[in-house]
Design a protein around this nucleic acid. Structure first.
Lengths: 166, 166
DNA sequence: TATTGTTATACTCTATAACTATA
DNA sequence: TATAGTTATAGAGTATAACAATA
């Protein structure tokens, strides 16, 4: 008998030591990372729909709720382009979640601040997001979830340009 | 003294129990998944450049190397749209990695088969990809890598439409 | 001269609709 | 009538270049 396990084409019950070319790429951690990442993004976008926000909008709003920031600060903190940020802040203003005001210190800058509605929306959306996350991670046991989160934190710090020294 | 740890804004050394709004979203597993997924995708795309391929091209080529498939089969296996697949197969043909031939059984179908060059390219690109993956996962120890891969496999099977029952 | 925010524009990626050729 | 493949086209998302207002 041969020395490698069979089963799969392509994935579900997968009896390791992938036999086919498709299985080898499909079970590679890098491939899985971006595929599962895409699935997570889809869940996030769907979850935020009731608040009229996309993932990037909530992310910007989170920074806005933390402290006084300019659009440029938001770009640096989120890794978004300036021109993209214009549209994001436009959206937050249109939804009544944030306001732009000229900085009295440097009149080139806009100070972005959250409205009370914006703080509520941020809080509620985060709650919904964490609930959706629990459902998404349901196939994992507690240890797996912990190791996954810890591993992702390390990889995020190592590879995401947004985490570069500031 | 207060009961929650501080440090962070935003991430790197992060002393858990996230204090700020930005930390709460940034350390959420779902958020980390798609962010790290994007970073992984970027590494994959860069790694494949020498072979003139994108990630999706190598994925299609992997299925082509496995067995006789039509473009429609490739769509079903990869989750890509038919019109997208036309461009992918065009690319593989232009690179000399695969060929289209009318199926003698059903002349509506194209049978996509790999060339010897295509098999070599697939093998070499996969080798490069796994080396890049090792570098990408270097911040993790062996146990973390194993748990990560296992957890991603479970999540992939649970949430990726490509893994639906066939 | 450099920076902040803005607009207009171009580019990439992917999906929709309509067409051809088969079945 | 339905399916495989193709083309043309439109849409979303994002980045580049140029501009106005400050500093």
């Amino acid at each position: 008998m041969m020395d490698s396990a069979t089963a799969s084409p392509y994935i579900p019950g997968m009896t390791h030591s992938p036999a086919s070319a498709a299985d080898r790429i499909t079970s590679a951690t890098g491939f899985l990372l971006f595929r599962v990442g895409d699935a997570a993004r889809a869940v996030i976008e769907r979850t935020l729909e009731p608040w009229g926000m996309r993932g990037k909008d909530l992310r910007a709003l989170a920074f806005v709720c933390d402290e006084i920031v300019s659009q440029q600060d938001l770009c640096r903190l989120t890794g978004m382009d300036r021109t993209t940020m214009v549209a994001v802040v436009d959206g937050l203003e249109r939804l009544g979640y944030a306001q732009r005001n000229r900085s009295p210190v440097d009149r080139r800058k806009h100070v972005i601040s959250p409205t009370p509605l914006g703080r509520t929306a941020h809080h509620d959306a985060m709650t919904a997001l964490l609930r959706a996350e629990t459902a998404f991670l349901a196939p994992l046991d507690e240890t797996e979830r912990d190791v996954l989160n810890g591993a992702l934190l390390k990889l995020y710090a190592a590879h995401d340009p947004t985490c570069a020294p500031r």
